[in-house]
Design a protein around this nucleic acid. Sequence first.
DNA 1: ATTGTGGCCTGCCCGC
DNA 2: TGCGGGCAGGCCACAA
Length: 261
Amino acid sequence: MPEILEVERYARLARRTVGRTIVDVATPDSWFLKRGADPSSVRAVALGATVAGVRRIGKLLLVDLAGRPTLGLRFGMTGRLLVDGVIGIEELEYGSSRVEPAWFRFALDFAGGTTLAIIDPRRLGGVEIAPDERRLGPDAFTLTESQLRDALRGGRGPLKARLLDQARIAGLGNLLTDETLWRARLLPTRRAGSLAGGELRRLHDAITDTLHELDRRGGSHTGDLQIARAPGRGCPRCGHPLSHTQAGGRSTYWCTPCASP
DNA sequence: ATTGTGGCCTGCCCGC
DNA sequence: TGCGGGCAGGCCACAA
């Protein structure tokens, strides 16, 4: 699913639209417009506007328009970006690789006939006007150890829940979180605020290493642990059967022996 | 403020 | 061969 690595690719792809002027807006699914936005308000914001820049914070893609409010694009679990006929991510874990016309939820048409569109079968993504960027924590890609310490400080809930909290750290999703914790040899159920200095450093290293390595491999679904998420497979490190439970309603895998001190 | 839970959405996979 | 149930998770509303 689109986590920070996939949305970063979407952002790189979307940057080719910088400087273009929007001549039409397609909102075939008004349910896809969030936080009070509707077809007419989105049209009013975007029509005639020029794309001034494309940014990304966590999983939120921001399209800055010259002299207008920013458009915020979210991709949920199965959303894909299509720019000038190029798909940002060909294969999406849990998503379909097909491009059905019925799955087009939003599109910007530019002068000259080019297009930026969101395809989302399950409609879990969305578009909003001027999203509140302060609701997101520091971006996981550039997260410092000090920022990680702040994000975990005082947390009495499970470590995994804190890492998934976009207001604390922006960008980590379910797969990246499991992979990161497995690499750091930390239990997902640890109290977030209970990490010792060495553990904090290990976790920070794991976040950084995981993001860069999986980015090179091709996405958030290419982790070592993800490959082992199958019946009969054991921990890729020690071979022990993986533990599995629902944490916060999310499927969670870990290796108990590896995470034990 | 923090933490936990339920629900939304629907394509896909599995077992019958 | 068709059918139905369960699963997947990012995000938000809501409750305690």
